[in-house]
Simulated assay, not measured.
Amino acid sequence: MSIALQVTDLSKTFPVGKKLFGGARGSVKAVHPMTLSVETGETLGIVGESGCGKSTLARMLVGLLPPTTGTIEIEGAALDTADPAAFGKRIQYVFQDPISSLNPRKTIRQIMEAPLRLLHGMDRAAREERIREIFDSVNLRADFLDRYPHEFSGGQAQRIGIARALAAQARILILDEPVSALDVSVQAQVLNLLADLKREFGLTYLFISHDLAVVEAVSDRIAVLYFGSVVEEGRAEEIFAHPRHPYTKLLADSAPVVGRPLRDPETGQAELPNPLDPPPGCAFAKRCPYATEKCRATAPVLEQIGPDQRVACFHPLPAR
Score class of each variant (00 low, 15 high):
1 M>K: 12
1 M>E: 13
4 A>Q: 12
7 V>Q: 01
12 K>H: 12
14 F>P: 06
15 P>A: 05
17 G>I: 09
19 K>Y: 01
24 A>P: 02
29 K>I: 09
30 A>P: 07
30 A>F: 11
30 A>C: 05
30 A>N: 07
32 H>P: 00
32 H>Q: 13
33 P>I: 08
34 M>N: 02
36 L>S: 06
36 L>Q: 09
37 S>F: 13
37 S>N: 15
41 G>S: 12
42 E>Q: 15
46 I>P: 00
47 V>G: 02
49 E>A: 02
51 G>H: 12
53 G>T: 13
55 S>W: 14
56 T>C: 07
58 A>L: 07
62 V>Q: 05
66 P>I: 03
77 A>Q: 14
77 A>I: 11
81 T>D: 12
82 A>T: 15
84 P>A: 08
86 A>Q: 15
87 F>M: 08
89 K>A: 13
90 R>N: 10
91 I>M: 05
91 I>W: 08
91 I>D: 03
98 P>W: 11
101 S>Y: 09
102 L>V: 07
106 K>I: 07
106 K>W: 15
110 Q>S: 09
115 P>K: 02
117 R>D: 14
118 L>M: 09
121 G>E: 13
122 M>R: 12
122 M>T: 06
123 D>W: 04
124 R>P: 06
125 A>Y: 11
126 A>R: 08
127 R>L: 07
128 E>V: 01
130 R>D: 12
132 R>L: 15
133 E>D: 09
134 I>P: 00
137 S>P: 00
142 A>C: 06
143 D>N: 12
146 D>H: 14
147 R>N: 06
148 Y>M: 12
148 Y>R: 08
149 P>M: 04
150 H>W: 12
157 A>R: 05
159 R>I: 14
160 I>S: 00
160 I>N: 00
161 G>E: 02
161 G>K: 01
162 I>P: 03
163 A>V: 06
167 A>R: 00
177 E>K: 04
177 E>Y: 08
178 P>N: 04
179 V>R: 00
180 S>D: 10
181 A>K: 04
183 D>P: 05
184 V>K: 06
186 V>C: 08
190 V>C: 04
190 V>S: 02
196 D>A: 15
196 D>N: 15
198 K>P: 13
199 R>Y: 10
199 R>N: 13
203 L>Q: 08
209 S>D: 05
211 D>L: 13
218 V>K: 02
221 R>K: 14
221 R>H: 15
221 R>Y: 10
223 A>E: 12
224 V>P: 06
225 L>D: 05
232 E>A: 01
233 E>F: 15
233 E>G: 00
234 G>L: 04
238 E>M: 10
238 E>V: 11
239 I>Q: 04
240 F>Q: 02
241 A>Y: 10
241 A>W: 02
242 H>T: 04
250 L>S: 09
255 A>P: 02
257 V>I: 13
259 G>N: 09
260 R>C: 05
268 G>Q: 05
270 A>L: 14
271 E>I: 03
273 P>F: 14
273 P>N: 05
276 L>A: 01
277 D>S: 10
279 P>A: 10
280 P>T: 09
285 A>G: 02
286 K>I: 00
286 K>W: 09
287 R>S: 03
299 A>W: 09
303 E>N: 07
304 Q>V: 10
306 G>N: 14
308 D>R: 11
313 C>Q: 01
315 H>I: 11
317 L>Q: 08
